[in-house]
Computed example of a mutant assay.
Amino acid sequence: MNPIPEKVVNYNVYDDTEKLVGIASEVTLPSLENLSETVSGAGILGEYESPTPGHFGSMTIEIPFRTILDKSFQLMKNRGRSIVLRAAQQSYDVSSGQASTRPLKITVRGIPKGLELGKLAVGGMTESKNTMEVLYLKVEENGKVLLELDKLNFIFKVQGEDLLADIRRQI
């Protein structure tokens, strides 16, 4: 029986190789939504959306900080840095009755899109938040690349399969 995936035990966020201290509890990861065109016409009952392979709409990542920090302003500079999230994910193996963990690594490169300074409150967090436009995204679990998307270099791989290889050859 396959283990039951349960949760993220903990994670850290790195700016290149430096750990970002002061991150709040959650990082909002990018959503991938294919660009598509509506297809309709003779012989088609109605219409449907036809996704364009490897082409995605705007993707963002939000990095929240508990308080206003120098790091938030460093992330506003367009320096081509990577943001790396490293997590330990827990699963439960029903047959052995034991929990185990496996590593998750998400690498993001992009350009600064915004900075929310948050709010000031006595005894409270500012809940500042940096937003980056994602140009590159790589998701690895347990050392295996599950997804690699590089918008500027025409790369889109899912579970190791290069889904744009034929298109690159044709153009």
Rank of each mutant, 00 (worst) to 15 (best):
M1I: 09
P3E: 10
I4G: 04
P5L: 13
P5D: 05
E6F: 12
V8Y: 08
V8L: 13
V9S: 15
N10I: 03
Y11A: 11
D15E: 10
D15P: 02
D16I: 14
T17V: 14
V21Q: 11
E26M: 10
E26F: 04
V27H: 04
V27M: 06
T28V: 14
T28G: 07
L29G: 12
P30M: 09
S31G: 14
S36G: 08
S36Y: 01
T38S: 02
T38R: 01
G43L: 03
L45C: 06
L45T: 08
G46Q: 00
E49H: 07
S50D: 11
P51Q: 08
P53T: 08
G54T: 05
H55Y: 11
F56M: 02
F56L: 00
M59H: 05
R66V: 15
T67G: 11
K71H: 06
F73Y: 04
F73S: 06
M76P: 00
N78Q: 12
R81W: 03
R81K: 14
V84N: 05
R86G: 00
R86M: 04
Q89P: 02
Q89V: 09
D93G: 12
D93F: 05
G97H: 03
Q98G: 11
T101L: 07
P103V: 10
L104Q: 12
L104M: 11
R109Y: 04
P112W: 07
K113G: 08
K113Q: 09
K113I: 03
L115C: 06
E116W: 10
E116D: 15
G118V: 03
L120P: 05
G124A: 14
E127K: 08
S128T: 01
M132V: 12
E133C: 11
Y136K: 09
L137D: 05
L137G: 12
K138V: 08
L149I: 00
D150A: 07
N153F: 09
N153L: 09
V158R: 13
V158H: 07
G160T: 05
D162N: 06
R168T: 06
R169H: 12
R169D: 13
Q170G: 12
Q170I: 09
I171Y: 15
